[in-house]
């Protein structure tokens, strides 16, 4: 060995060799903090993300559509749980994370602060919002933190139906009456820009990105992911005869990518800062669910305590079946 390496250097070499960091491994404080922030934000996004779609469960146009939407929203609850568990392995607690969400201290994806005005929004969300989330999550399957990466693998398996069911809704509407097609186009017009903002600020405006890439938490930059997403989506929109609401969108043969118009980052930062159309409504809904569920949590605890007191400790060990 001979040379002395600092713990940081050894950690850096470890992640650069594509090793996974596990909860008990030594890690730099900054790495831990970045992950706690990122994973808990991600978990909050899954949980708050249920609200815009839950808005349409009772008004789904068919039983089939209702079952699908219910299953998707239930998946998002599961995703939140996998992610909270992953964050907890870093030493934060579930209570702390929930408190931070409800107090407004923690952030979640700005996209969920937009309203869902028509049924077509269920299509646009599945196609674009889940689509953008998938692009990010596929990259995160290769993140350096083991529990986060494993949660992502599970989530990605479940996500693929989310985007497909959304696209199917859009396709059906686009093939329908003039009014139905107009409804689909209107949803696309409203969700397109917020969706491509989901990848976060452009690289030169994203100060923490470089460190995250260095630690192998992120594997691709915001702009790279955004470009890939746009490149994929153009043909999907064309196929169903809808128009992406960006007059500057055009194929660039030189770069092999689509050029696109200027993103309104003022809007993005305004929504992040809490001034989006639904920020207050979303947090109020979370708070209400939390408060109204309190008696259930209390009852379950009381029952567990009672049962434990009643049950004699098992003295004989048997093999689990």
């Amino acid at each position: 060995m001979g040379e002395t390496h600092s713990l940081e250097d050894r950690f850096q070499a470890f992640v650069e060799a594509e090793n996974k960091v596990e909860p008990k491994h030594w890690m730099p404080d900054g790495y831990r903090k970045t992950l706690v922030r990122q994973i808990s934000q991600h978990a909050h996004s899954e949980v708050v993300g249920m609200l815009p779609e839950a808005n349409w469960i009772s008004r789904a146009p068919s039983l089939r559509a209702k079952l699908i939407l219910l299953a998707k929203v239930q998946d998002e609850a599961g995703h939140g749980l996998y992610l909270y568990s992953a964050a907890e392995t870093l030493g934060t607690s579930r209570d702390q994370m929930i408190d931070d969400l409800l107090s407004g201290k923690a952030k979640y994806s700005s996209i969920f602060n937009y309203p869902t005005l028509t049924w077509a929004d269920m299509g646009a969300i599945g196609w674009l919002v889940d689509g953008a989330a998938i692009a990010n999550q596929v990259m995160l399957c290769r993140t350096s933190y083991g529990p986060y990466s494993r949660a992502m693998v599970r989530i990605c398996k479940e996500e693929s139906f989310h985007q497909r069911q959304g696209y199917e809704i859009m396709m059906t509407l686009a093939k329908g009456t003039k009014e139905q097609k107009a409804m689909a186009q209107d949803a696309l017009n409203r969700w397109w820009w917020p969706s491509i903002m989901m990848f976060g600020p452009s690289d030169d405006n994203s100060p923490n990105s470089a460190q995250s890439m260095k630690w192998r938490i992120k594997r691709k930059s915001n702009d790279e992911l955004r470009q890939e997403f746009i490149d994929k989506t153009v043909a999907q929109a064309e196929f169903i005869g809808l128009t992406l609401p960006d007059p500057d969108l055009k194929w660039n043969a030189e770069t092999g990518h689509y050029d696109f118009g200027e993103i309104d980052w003022t809007e993005f930062f305004e929504v992040i800062a809490g001034n989006g159309p639904c920020n207050a409504e979303r947090l109020a809904a979370r708070q209400k669910a939390h408060d109204e569920g309190a008696w259930v949590r209390d009852a379950a605890t009381a029952y567990a305590v009672k049962q434990a007191a009643r049950k004699p400790n098992p003295s004989t060990q048997t093999h689990a079946a």
Partner: peptide
Amino acid sequence: SGSLHAPDAEM
């Protein structure tokens, strides 16, 4: 598979 919080084994 993963972990979760619950008040007792049954839950």
